[in-house]
């Protein structure tokens, strides 16, 4: 694998080809906020909070740093007005689902996001996919999955699998940035146990 050189926040850094901007920045001691990233899982690019600005050939645009791979000569900025504004908006949209989520509140304080900007959504799930991906990628159980799409997308336990596997595991519960996962599980349990 060859090495590429790029610039992040004015700092010259080197990275392996194929590395993401996010891991390269972190290795250089530059922090980028994330919600849907987990070290044991493939990057998902779901929450978009890790947006950064890249500049190449005179053009700049926002990209999702946890899935965007580095390239020779790339100029990356991880914080500026445009990025902050974008993260603030993203946070406000997420807070409409989960206003009491601790990780969201922490970021909201930093970016000045207003938890009441948008009306409260009915579902607490922020679709980070941590539960679904953890169950699939780490446990190989697929006891919980996504259903539907767009604004109706939800997570859903598969009762036949959940009834057998979940009680002895529950490893996904602490990953959920909201309380939705546990609520969904308790519901499935109520329906399947007698």
């Amino acid at each position: 694998m060859s090495e590429v050189r790029l610039q992040i926040d004015g700092k010259e850094v080197r990275a392996e080809e194929g590395a993401t901007i996010l891991e390269t920045a972190r290795a250089a001691g530059i922090e980028i906020p994330t919600l849907c990233l987990h070290e044991a899982l493939e990057p998902f690019g779901g929450c978009r909070l890790c947006v950064v600005e890249v500049e190449a050939g005179g053009w700049s645009r926002l990209v999702v740093s946890c899935v965007y791979t580095v390239a020779e000569g790339l100029v990356v900025r991880t914080r500026n007005k445009k990025i902050d504004r974008t993260r603030k908006m993203l946070l406000e949209l997420l807070l409409a689902h989960a206003p009491d989520s601790p990780p969201l509140q922490e970021l909201a304080a930093e970016y000045g996001a207003d938890r009441d900007r948008f009306g409260q959504e009915t579902s607490f799930c922020v679709h980070c996919g941590l539960c679904v991906r953890y169950c699939a990628e780490v446990k190989g159980l697929h006891a919980v999955g996504f259903i539907d799409r767009g604004i109706r997308k939800e997570i859903s336990f598969l009762p036949e699998i959940a009834a057998k596997e979940c009680r002895d595991c529950m490893e996904c519960f602490p990953l959920c940035p909201t309380s939705y996962l546990q609520a969904a599980f308790v519901l499935v349990e109520a329906f399947t146990s007698r």
Binding site: V132, A136, H142, A143, V144, G145, F146, I147, D148, R149, S156, L158, E160, I161
Partner: peptide, 12 residues
Amino acid sequence: VPPALVQHITTF
């Protein structure tokens, strides 16, 4: 294919 994935595709 995991049933969870079939469920995702068929509802998507």
